[in-house]
Amino acid sequence: MAKLEKIIEIESLYKSFRKGNQIIPVLQNISFDIMDGEFLALMGPSGSGKSTLLNLIAGIDKPDSGSIFVQGIDITNLDERTLSRWRSEHVGFIFQFYNLIPVLTAFENIELPLLMMNLSAKDRKEHVDFALSIVGLYDRKDHYPKQLSGGQQQRVAIARAIVTDPSIIVADEPTGDLDKKSAEDVLNLMSELNQKFGKTIIMVTHDLRAAKYAKSMKYLDKGVLINGSAEIFI
């Protein structure tokens, strides 16, 4: 029953940003593995490089050096097009501010990632309806984002992240903008996705309560990974 396969292998990752003619190192020599079916919380103070790391894992950004193997493929070596395709098939994203398009309804927002796949309108509708039912917002499908509460908007965003049935879900402070109750709903939903649907989840948070929903934790400080349980440092 226990899954012990590595889904992601990160090896000596370096990433820096340029500010004028100054180079700011953000991630330094990061190496770790993520197991298939894991729910990992990535913690650390603000500015420690959590989002940067998450973007690299999700194929949104490229490292200066090092490699990221996902299911055997080094995504840091993929060209722009292939990476883009890979991303849309394998990764679902959840953002702190939901990133929903205000002029599209919940249904249409969730449908967006599907439009680039070879699916009939009927198949798309089935996928969207299923995603909506998982997040419990089927009756809100024709609402626009501004007609929904923050928690509901984040659940729409979660539906959008899972509608393509990706194996990996990345979430950057998904509860950062929510009240306690909505945050709990969202976190329960993510637990369910992990446990019931077997999604591998990597969640950036600096909220310990949120981190408790995860199965494991990694702690990042000034761009360096610190081994051991996060609680020790808090």
């Binding site: 883009s84 395709r85 991303r87 849309s88 990133n99 398009i101 967006l112 990632p113 439009l115 680039m116």
Partner: peptide, 12 residues
């Protein structure tokens, strides 16, 4: 521009 980035992320 955020929305276009989103489209790009979805491989549009």
């Amino acid at each position: 521009k955020n929305e276009y980035a989103l489209f790009k992320m979805f491989s549009y």
